[in-house]
């Protein structure tokens, strides 16, 4: 077994679920989420020197996923603007699945950076300062993205401004 492989297996064993959830919330689609995690893992572990610290490796993989998500969403923007004309969005009668669908649909109306800010702030629980660092932008920009995203989500999901600090 190559020297990078134990760290790779340990990362997936301990943090695979968290990486799956993160990718799923960013992309809203299991297949695209799978591609996102796989490509990020490939990029990080293809580097010449790999440390063995799982937390550090997870941070690298998350950063790679975020960069890749924002870059790829730019390329997909045109496609997404017309996709709804071509395919039917699946509909679920089960309440739990219906809520998840509703959230995915609402998240899909956000711009890539707004969506990333929402996931980092409200799912990963990161403070605005750290989100700004992750996205390479000013804190004010993050706050603006969050405010815009909250306004959109408030309408679609019925979440209140008070419940989304």
């Amino acid at each position: 077994m190559a020297d990078w492989e134990p760290a790779f297996r340990a990362l997936l064993a301990s943090r695979g679920g968290a990486l799956r959830s993160y990718a799923y919330l960013l992309t809203g689609d299991a297949s695209t989420a799978g591609d996102l995690v796989q490509e990020a893992l490939t990029r990080v572990f293809s580097r010449r020197r790999i440390g063995g610290d799982v937390n550090e490796l997870e941070a690298y993989v998350r950063r790679a996923m975020l960069n890749q998500y924002i870059d790829s969403r730019r390329r997909l923007r045109r496609w997404n603007a017309t996709r709804h004309l071509l395919v039917d969005v699946p509909h679920h009668d089960d309440d739990r699945l219906a809520v998840a669908d509703e959230v995915r649909r609402a998240l899909a109306t956000l711009s890539p950076k707004q969506r990333a800010c929402v996931v980092l702030r409200y799912y990963e629980d990161l403070p605005v300062t750290e989100i700004a660092g992750e996205l390479g932008c000013a804190e004010g920009t993050v706050k603006r993205h969050l405010a815009d995203a909250r306004a959109k989500l408030a309408t679609q999901l019925g979440v209140t401004e008070e419940s989304t600090p």
Binding site: R20, S21, Y24, L25, A33, V99, V103, R104, L107, Y123
Partner: peptide
């Protein structure tokens, strides 16, 4: 809502 969605899809 985000946690429920992540749990559902991940």
């Amino acid at each position: 809502l985000l946690r429920a969605t992540a749990a559902e899809g991940s």
